[in-house]
C-alpha cells in the first residue's frame, strides 16, 4: 500500500532559485538561508521518498488569466521548467508517477473535490525551488531523486480556496494515496509564504510573530489554524502571505498528532520571510532511524 510518511512546509522564493543557479549560496546574504536546509537535505536522504506530492502555486506562468483553476492536478508524464521571463531554471525535468496521479485524480473527484486535470503543464519556481532546497543542486541533465505529483492551487486571484477546504483536501489526498496498492513512500510538500507582500505601497511587510505562531500551531492546533480567515493572512502576513493556505493541504494529509523534527526561519530572502518545517507521522520516525 502507498503511504504518507511525512510532510514538509517550505517557502518557494524565486530569488533562492536564482542564488542556487548562479552559485552564490555562500555569500553573506544567502548563507543563513541555506544553512537551515543542510539538516533537511540529510533528512531527505533518510526519508528517500518514492514520490513527492507537491502543493504549490503557479505565478502566472503556465496559467494565464484565461483559465484560473482553483485546484489543478498534474497528470502529464513530465513537466518542464518554464521560462518565467529570464529563461528556464537549469534544473531537471520533473517526472510524474502518472498512474498514481490518475488514481488520485479519480479518487478526489469521487470524494467530492472537483479538481482540474492537467495533461500538459510547465512548472515554475513555485515547484522547482522547494525541490532544489530539499535536494540540493541538480543540473538539467540530471534527475530528481523522486517522482513528483504537482498540485497547483490558485492563490493569485482572490479568493484562494479556504484553509479549511485545503485541510480537508489533504485528508482526501491521503485517502487516495492509501487506496493505491503499490508499495510507495510518499512525502507531501506544502509550499509558499511565509509573510510577504510584493505589491503596492505596503510592499515589504514581514510579520515574524505571526509566522512563528503559524509554525507552532501546525503541530499544536492544525484544525484551528486551518480556519484562519483570508483577511487575517492579507492584513497580518501581507497580500502574498495568503499562499500559506497551501500548507494546510500538507497538514491535512498527516496524522492528527505529528512530531516536528526540524524548523528554519530567516528574514529576508528578497521580499520574503523564509519558513520551513518538517513534520513526521508517528508510524514513520524517519529522523530516529
Amino acid at each position: 500500500m502507498a503511504r504518507v510518511t511525512a510532510g514538509v512546509g517550505c517557502s518557494h522564493v524565486p530569488a533562492i532559485g536564482v542564488a542556487m543557479d548562479q552559485g552564490i549560496t555562500d555569500q553573506p546574504y544567502w548563507a543563513p538561508v541555506f544553512e537551515g536546509f543542510e539538516a533537511s537535505r540529510e533528512w531527505m536522504r533518510k526519508a528517500d521518498p518514492d514520490v513527492i506530492f507537491l502543493v504549490y502555486n503557479d505565478h502566472c506562468t503556465a496559467f494565464d488569466a484565461s483559465c484560473i483553476p482553483t485546484f489543478a492536478l498534474g497528470c502529464a508524464p513530465e513537466f518542464h521548467p518554464a521560462d518565467e521571463g529570464w529563461g528556464p531554471r537549469p534544473v531537471p525535468v520533473v517526472k510524474n508517477h502518472q498512474k498514481l496521479a490518475s488514481h488520485i485524480a479519480q479518487s478526489l473527484i469521487l470524494d467530492e473535490f472537483d479538481i482540474t486535470i492537467m495533461n500538459e503543464m510547465e512548472v515554475d519556481h513555485g515547484l522547482t525551488v522547494p525541490l532544489s532546497m530539499m535536494y540540493g543542486e541538480h543540473g538539467p541533465d540530471d534527475e530528481w531523486p523522486a517522482l513528483v505529483i504537482p498540485l497547483a492551487v490558485n492563490v493569485v486571484q482572490y479568493p484562494a480556496p479556504t484553509g479549511n477546504r485545503c485541510y480537508n483536501l489533504g485528508k482526501a489526498v491521503r485517502r487516495a494515496i492509501e487506496s493505491y496498492e503499490e508499495d510507495l513512500d510518499i512525502v507531501i510538500f506544502g509550499t509558499g509564504g511565509m509573510s510577504h507582500q510584493l505589491q503596492y505601497k505596503r510592499a515589504g511587510l514581514i510579520n515574524r510573530e505571526w509566522d512563528t505562531r503559524f509554525l507552532n500551531r501546525l503541530t499544536s492546533d492544525p484544525v484551528g489554524l486551518s480556519r484562519t480567515p483570508h483577511v487575517e493572512y492579507l492584513r497580518e502576513a501581507g497580500s502574498e502571505g495568503v499562499e500559506m493556505v497551501m500548507w494546510h493541504v500538507m497538514r491535512g494529509a498527516l496524522d492528527e498528532d505529528v512530531t516536528e523534527v526540524h524548523r528554519h526561519y530567516h528574514v529576508p530572502a528578497s521580499n520574503t520571510a523564509v519558513g520551513h518545517i518538517i513534520l513526521e507521522n508517528s508510524e514513520y520516525r524517519i529522523s530516529a532511524e
Binding site: V156, Q157, Y158, P159, Q197, Y200, R202, R235, S239
Partner: peptide
C-alpha cells in the same frame, strides 16, 4: 488594509 490592492475577481 493600507497600501494594498487585493487582486480579486
Amino acid at each position: 488594509i493600507p497600501g494594498t490592492i487585493v487582486f480579486d475577481a
